[in-house]
Write a protein that binds this DNA or RNA. Structure first.
Length: 420
RNA sequence: GUGAGUGUAGCUCAGGGGUAGAGCGCUGGACUGUGGCUCCAGAUGUCGAGGGUUCAAAUCCCUUCACUCACCCCA
């Protein structure tokens, strides 16, 4: 019986790997330029961590996590996102002690048990960045600017930054109450889901795609009108500093995020070509989270970029093999010679390939061409006897005799000299 | 978890009761020791799986699995 991969868990094969590496390299480069340092946190955490941070009643924790008892009887969860783990590590290692400000980033897989669809997988990868200890709106703008800068650097186009403010505890409660009243008055017009959500998370109704609900929600009160003076000031500041950095954005008062810990600023980057799952990046401020997880009262803000989704928006590229040399050998002795020569050349950085099957010269030439070899070295019985070989330049379609023992110098000279 | 669509060669897909197909790719030949182009030849399938109807099923019926998209939720 054939065993295949678990649903929603993907292999990343050779043609794709190059694109992944580019995303990772640029992420490291950009984030380190902006003063972030890498942190690697475990994939498995105690289940409590996520129910406390993301929220007990959120869909993610309620029905999307891979949670199970390990052999020691501990309830553990495969992380559905990275922020909680990074905050946990920040507290656990008392990173705030000497200096509360910290900029951390991490790249790795996350796990959510959802039905896969375009741009959504059960194992997916995120680039995460978190900033602790700064409550000034400048950092909110900077973090968003970094995301945008990164996206344009890797070649993304057709994306749009949307921002909103969710307020803090003080302003969100009265807003939630008023929204509930508003929804109760219009109960008959709402779909079953939204009626159910009303109690715990009325904000969700904004996200509902049912036409009836959308129509109702166009008249619903906005958080923006309920923000306390501090939150209003902060939100104004964020917009001001985004303008200072020339980062275009749109305010989306209907944007709500699915994680409980967000306060004040929240943002998403929406991209075209993604299907229904159109957010490539998302993030926001979480001023209460560090304290809620047992640390001191330190604010935080962060973002996550979905790598699979980002790749979907980026153009595909034909991978080039860039083989320097193919050695075509004819006969047993020459084959042995080719075998040992290719080993030496590969060891010295000249990417070389041979044919192991003893095919005809024609077949070997075809393979050389298929693998994109820049040069082909032909060794037959005659050449071996005379100590010479034929070196053919596949691009220039020219060949000449070269002494076998100087072949390494010859190849490196030609490859190094006139760039291919 | 719910709904819809699709499963036939390595890939993209035709065929809808009567011998399993095309294009691309692959292997070889034309060119006996020289690649791409052209021409010719060849190999490869439990027709997703299991059951049923039938003289006969890739085709009709039932069940099941997988994939895809959407709902939901989000990166």
């Amino acid at each position: 019986m054939e065993v295949n991969a678990v649903r929603g868990f993907n292999d990343i094969l050779a043609p794709e790997i190059e694109r992944w590496r580019i995303l990772e390299e640029y992420a490291r480069q950009v984030l380190e330029e902006f003063g972030f340092s890498e942190i690697r946190v475990p994939i498995l955490e105690k289940a409590k961590l996520f129910s406390r941070s993301i929220g007990e009643e959120t869909d993610i924790v309620e029905k999307e996590t891979y949670t199970f008892e390990d052999r020691g009887g501990d309830l553990v969860t495969m992380r559905p996102e990275a922020t909680a783990s990074i905050v946990r590590a920040y507290i656990e290692h008392k990173m705030y002690a000497a200096e509360p400000m910290a900029k951390l980033y991490s790249i790795g897989p996350m796990f959510r048990h959802e039905r896969p669809q375009k741009g959504r997988f059960r194992q997916f990868h995120q680039i995460n960045a978190e900033v602790f200890g700064i409550s000034h709106p400048m950092i909110d703008a900077e973090v968003m600017a970094i995301v945008i800068h990164y996206l344009s650097l890797v070649g993304a186009a057709d994306y749009n930054l949307q921002i909103n403010s969710l307020g803090c505890r003080r302003c969100r409660l009265p807003y939630k109450k008023d929204l509930q009243v508003f929804l109760t008055d219009r109960l008959p017009q709402l779909c079953g889901d939204c009626r159910r959500r009303m109690e715990r998370n009325p904000l969700r109704a904004f996200d509902c795609k049912k036409p009836g609900c959308q129509e109702v929600m166009t008249e619903a009160p906005h958080v923006a009108d309920y923000l306390c003076s501090e939150c209003t000031e902060h939100f104004k500041g964020v917009q001001y500093y985004l303008e200072v950095l020339d980062v275009p954005f749109t305010i989306n008062p209907r944007m709500v995020r699915g994680l409980d810990y967000y306060t004040k600023t929240s943002f998403e980057v929406i991209a075209g070509g993604l299907g229904a799952q159109n957010a490539v990046a998302g993030g926001g401020r979480y001023d209460r989270l560090v304290e809620e997880l047992g640390g001191p009262d330190i604010p935080g803000i962060g973002f996550a970029i979905g790598m699979e989704r980002l790749l979907l928006t980026l153009p595909k590229r034909r991978p080039s093999v860039d083989l320097a040399l193919f050695i075509a050998a004819l006969g047993e002795e020459p084959q042995k010679e080719a075998f040992s020569l290719s080993y030496k050349l590969n060891r010295s950085g000249v990417r070389t390939m041979i044919d192991y099957e003893g095919r005809s010269l024609k077949a070997q030439m075809r393979r050389a061409d298929k693998f994109g070899a820049r040069f082909v070295l032909i060794i037959g019985e005659d050449e071996q006897r005379s100590g010479k070989s034929i070196l053919r330049d596949m691009k220039k379609k020219k060949q000449e005799e070269v002494p076998l023992h100087t072949i390494f110098e010859e190849i490196t000279r030609r490859l190094g000299g006139g760039s291919p």
